[in-house]
């Protein structure tokens, strides 16, 4: 089952993690190379300040190396890295906002952009527009949980850990988000019959 795939991937990450904790520079390099792109992509959801994201990734890895002997071995390395990056970015944005006034609810911007996505057909374009507009109406935390669930494929437990809420709240939060989305997305005027069982492929895998 798919869980096996995920766990195999995690096993690999965990092996690297253990080697890194032992002080292996190669493992540390690998950890960086394997996660750099994902972390930047994730960071970009909070801010469009590219320098801030880079600094955050930089700080995260400096912290990892200097504290490596005191680190535990997380169930999911990706989960751990996301959570840590999220905290660093929040802290940086907070200290930045002391100097420049930012809007109240600014910190998250998990709005969806499809500007650079090449799309195959009209139905998909219509769906894109629907998704984009409905996500934009959601509170930021709901936007974030949608991203973590459907884009990053995190489990409720992992999401709860990253967002620093309990698992029940994570369920509720996603439920609320889906509730708001349901009416707009449920019924399509053009009935899309995707060739479900042949065409579904893993996409956006880094």
């Amino acid at each position: 089952m798919a869980e096996n795939i995920v766990s195999i991937h995690e096993d690999h990450n965990t092996t690297i993690w253990l080697a890194f904790k032992e002080g292996s520079w190669e493992a540390y390099t690998q950890l960086y190379n394997q996660n750099f792109k994902l972390l930047n992509n994730y960071g970009y959801k909070f801010t469009k300040d590219v320098n801030l994201i880079e600094d955050a990734v930089h700080d995260l890895f400096i912290k990892l190396w200097t504290n490596r002997t005191n680190l535990s071995t997380p169930a999911s390395v990706k989960n751990y890295l996301y959570k840590a990056l999220r905290n660093i970015i929040f802290r940086k944005m907070q200290s930045q906002s002391r100097f420049t006034e930012i809007e109240d609810d600014c910190p998250f911007s998990f709005e969806v952009s499809f500007d650079h996505v090449v799309i195959a057909n009209e139905e998909e374009r219509a769906l894109q527009n629907q998704i984009k507009s409905v996500i934009a109406t959601l509170p930021h935390r709901q936007q974030e949980i949608i991203f973590l669930r459907f884009y990053e494929d995190f489990s409720y437990v992992e999401i709860a850990d990253i967002m620093e809420i309990n698992v029940n709240s994570a369920y509720k939060l996603l439920y609320k988000a889906l509730n708001s989305m349901e009416n707009i997305l449920k019924v399509s005027k053009l009935v899309i019959i995707l060739a479900l069982f042949s065409e579904i492929r893993v996409n956006v895998r880094v």
Binding site: V112, S113, L185
Partner: peptide
């Protein structure tokens, strides 16, 4: 069909991998 296409379409959003700076 609708639920799966929502997920898949959502996942096709723009990315920022910042590869140039790695």
């Amino acid at each position: 069909s609708r639920a799966s296409s929502v997920i898949l379409t959502y996942r096709k959003q723009d990315t920022f991998f910042n590869e140039d700076r790695i």
